[in-house]
Amino acid sequence: MNNKKEKNVILTTLEGVPGQTIMEHYGLVQGSTIRAKHIGKDIMASFKNIVGGELKGYTELLQESRKEALERMVEQATELGANAVVNIRFSTSSVAQGVAELFAYGTAVKVES
């Protein structure tokens, strides 16, 4: 999760960053991705639906879109001048048949130790 781009931004699901105090508060930042089912993966998935178990193709898709949503959120936070995002939550919703949205939101803050 901690790749180069996000290294300077601390992400947590807590109210603050442990060991540091919140100096400034920038409000809500958010990022979302909408993804559709992939035809090729869908065919594989329908085979897998017979025997059950993990759908690896979809898991990868979910992971990618989760990263993408987080990245967009972090981008928004850095634009505001924040160096941490606290109280992060994920949310999913289906937009249309076979189309799903993954949504990440949190509070952008500036912290200092």
């Binding site: 999760m1 901690n2 601390i10 992400l11 947590t12 699901t13 807590l14 109210e15 603050g16 960053v17 442990p18 060991g19 998935a45 897998k48 639906n49 017979i50 025997v51 059950g52 178990g53 993990e54 759908l55 979809y58 898991t59 898709l61 979910l62 992971q63 989760r66 987080l70 992060i88 994920f90």
Partner: peptide
């Protein structure tokens, strides 16, 4: 109050899992 630690980072795990035909 938050506990005293050095570093914090977000971690996530995800999985997509399907049901088999018989159960369906």
């Amino acid at each position: 109050s938050l506990i005293d630690v050095q570093e914090a980072a977000l971690f996530a795990g995800s999985v997509v899992i399907s049901i088999d035909y018989f159960k369906m």
